[in-house]
Write a protein that binds this DNA or RNA. Structure first.
Length: 462
RNA sequence: GGCGGCGUAGCCAAGCGGUAAGGCAGAGGUCUGCAAAACCUCCAUACAUCGGUUCAAUUCCGAUCGCCGCCUCCA
């Protein structure tokens, strides 16, 4: 049985989808005003792990990830660049998908864009107006906080406290209560706007997620995720808008991941302490190692991000890859009963850990214990094909769940193969210095050679 | 100020009532070309501090110290 930590109850709860065998989830996506940084990708990679795990557990998954392509930052950015909003956001949307591909993130089923769902948002706001949860003021529309008594429950904030602590934002929109949040912003000179039954203007941020999630997943769905900084006010506001409009429970399980921190501080654009994926790849780091780093630690704990950490992750991945490669060369006959039993126990422990709120760190610990057992057995030539087959199946599952692409073949082109053959000749002639020079040259091209009793093998450097 | 979280070996990190997983680094060893790669073995009387509950606490409770997040756009 899978258990997930639900932010709404602040507890781990048994996970039961609303519809048997099917999970509908909404994952808050990027605002496309700039390249996403590696901290942002922690969330997207974790959500990918969640998605992959649910699939591995037999669920049919429908994932929706919004793309916020109209807000203050995108508007400011496009104005500064002197291009249309559409043109401006387009390049960052492209870049976002390139980065997702580099990190091995599976595509969600739907990537709705805010600018393509204005009518849905308008309809939702109208519904809120009809039900007395919203009001108009100088062409803008606001959600009336006092009309929704459950407000603040997700974030654990009480409404009185909100009054005491609320910092009034500096915009000139007029609200009847400072805590009320904007649903629709009246047109301002120089800003993009849409002509709608509400008048001319543009949507507020929160309304898009309510409108688009309900459009694609229904008025009630299973899982909604984001970084912990989305809990308040974004998710709190989503609940208010959605439930006030439909009168139904909006989301069953709210899940939030912790941040990436740098020297103990949250990685963020405003602090300037961030790396984009592009930065890191440009420095020669491996995308798979970055993925490993992000996904191998528990999602509700902050990850202290360092460049050394990527190296550490690469070493882990390397050990895993070597082990999987080893399974292609079984030894011994029959079945190694002890290893078979150890394998069964590990598989069991692995899934138990993952079932327990996606405890990937613990799960990987068990995998590495198995790696050691399997290597030991292999060293003693007690790794028969029967065991190797079972192990391959398990590592295949681990690979699919974590998105590691373990055991993917590296085929050399003719030139490289020629170099390897050359080196073998040099070694036979005991010209080791020249042989090593070739090996080093290959290493610089990301290929590691391994001289084994059974001949030379090669692998990709991680 | 309000709410929430964290503090485990040189580093990263699980465990959360029954006596410390895993990885990196380090030290030995195997194989080998006294090479590379790989593999194996070893590596915390101890879980921020101080009290309390308990037969038993890293795990529960309380206090203290330190760090972080949210309360404002933010994954």
């Amino acid at each position: 049985m899978i258990r997930f930590h639900n932010t709404y109850s602040r507890r781990k709860e048994p996970f039961r989808p609303l519809v048997e065998g099917e999970v509908r989830m909404y994952t808050c996506g990027p605002t496309v005003y700039d390249f996403a940084h590696i901290g942002n990708f922690r969330a997207y990679v974790w959500e990918d792990l969640l998605r992959r795990y649910l699939k591995a557990r037999g669920y049919r998954v429908t994932q929706v990830m919004n793309i916020t392509d109209v807000d203050d930052k995108t508007i400011r950015g496009s104005a500064a660049a002197g291009v249309s909003l559409e043109e401006y956001t387009h390049r960052y949307i492209e870049a976002f998908f390139e980065d997702l591909d580099a990190l091995g993130v599976e595509r969600a089923e739907v990537y709705p864009r805010a600018t393509r769902h204005i009518p849905e948002m308008v309809a939702l706001i109208q519904k809120l107006m009809e039900r007395g949860h919203a009001y108009e003021s100088k062409g803008s529309f606001y959600f009336r906080l006092d009309s929704f008594p459950a407000y603040g429950r997700l974030a654990g904030l009480d409404r009185q406290g909100l009054i005491a602590n609320f910092r009034v934002d500096s915009d000139e929109y007029e609200k009847s209560d400072v805590r009320d949040f904007v649903l629709w912003k009246a047109h301002k000179e120089g800003e993009p706007s849409w002509d709608t039954p509400l008048g001319s203007g543009r949507p507020g941020w929160h309304i898009e997620c309510s409108a688009m999630s309900m459009k694609y997943l229904g008025e009630s769905f299973d899982i909604h995720t984001g970084g912990t900084d989305n809990v308040f006010p974004h998710h709190e506001n989503e609940i208010a808008q959605s439930e006030a409009a439909t009168g139904k429970p909006f989301v069953h399980t709210w899940m939030h991941c912790a941040h990436l921190v740098v020297n103990g501080e949250k990685m963020s654009k405003s602090q300037g302490n961030f790396y984009t994926l592009r930065d890191l790849l440009g420095l020669g780091h491996d995308a798979r190692a970055i993925r490993y780093l992000l996904v191998s630690q528990h999602y509700r704990k902050p990850i202290n991000f360092t460049l050394d950490g990527i190296g550490w992750a690469g070493a882990n991945l390397n050990r895993l890859g070597d082990c999987v490669r080893r399974l292609e060369h079984p030894s011994g006959t029959g079945e190694n009963g002890r290893l078979a039993e150890f394998t069964r126990q590990t598989v069991d422990a692995f899934y138990k850990s993952m079932d327990d709120d996606l405890n990937s760190a613990a799960a990987m610990g068990f995998v590495f214990e198995l790696v050691r057992e399997l290597n030991s057995a292999g060293d003693r030539a007690e790794l028969p094909a029967k065991n190797a087959g079972e192990l391959q199946r398990f590592f295949g599952e681990v690979s699919a769940i974590f998105g590691f692409a373990l055991g993917s073949e590296l085929t050399l082109d003719q030139e490289l193969e020629g170099l390897v053959a050359n080196r073998e000749d040099l070694r036979k002639a005991r010209k080791f210095a020249e042989a090593d020079a070739i090996r080093d040259a290959l290493l610089r091209r990301g290929i590691v050679l391994e001289d084994t009793p059974a001949g030379v093998r090669w692998k990709k450097k991680v």
